[in-house]
Amino acid sequence: MNRDCPAQTSIGKKVLMALTGLMLSGFIVGHLLGNLTIFAGREWINSYAYHLEELKPLVWAARITLLGLVTIHILTAICLTIKNRQARPVAYAKKEHQTTSVGARTMALTGTVILAFIIFHLMHFTFRVTHPEISNSLDEHGHRDVFKMVVMSFQRPELAFGYVAALTLLFLHLSHGLWSLFQSIGLLGERTLPVAKKISCAVSFILYLAYISIPLTCYFGLVKV
């Protein structure tokens, strides 16, 4: 039998989704740990940002890798979604759903909005083009004052709650994506399946709480400039 290249088959594409998703989830954890230095004070987060920027070649290597992962993740998702839509040309007049979750049914939607959010987030904090008036100040060491940029950004309700909303979608995406990726690479079985679903929900919820703690504490004045 003539076989396609493994990456072109249904399972091959699912594995691509899973592996890129796993690596992007790893980034989400690392990024969070860095962000949480804001609670240690201005010195910490500014020094973290300064030292990260010092590692320029590595940072750019990481950025290019992330861009590659996101691109593969999105292109594969588009491929799979088109194929899935084509697989049912006539819709049901009436269809009941039994076990599927909100997260599972909205993967394409949450994914698209998260992409838009990532682009805005980069323009906002990384390239500092959306709010230059609060993004370009320096601290007493002459380093970029990331602390001030973040706190003053999140004092604005549209930014604070916009970030919380986007992170809610990321939570939904991860709550389904995390266990799904282990299912797709064939690691789950009878005993591990229900556990993986629960852990997936719990881990994505913990990540969600940790992430939204930053805009919320800034907005409600618990972290001040």
Binding site: S10, N84, R105, Q183, L187, G189
Partner: peptide, 27 residues
């Protein structure tokens, strides 16, 4: 189409076949 792990198949299966077999197939 391609499985996106909704689990609807398992709950509709008259023989209650588990989606663990999808993981097994992938493996």
């Amino acid at each position: 189409g391609n499985c996106t792990n909704h689990g609807e198949c398992e709950s509709s299966c008259p023989k209650e076949i588990s989606i663990k077999f999808i993981s097994k197939m992938n493996r």
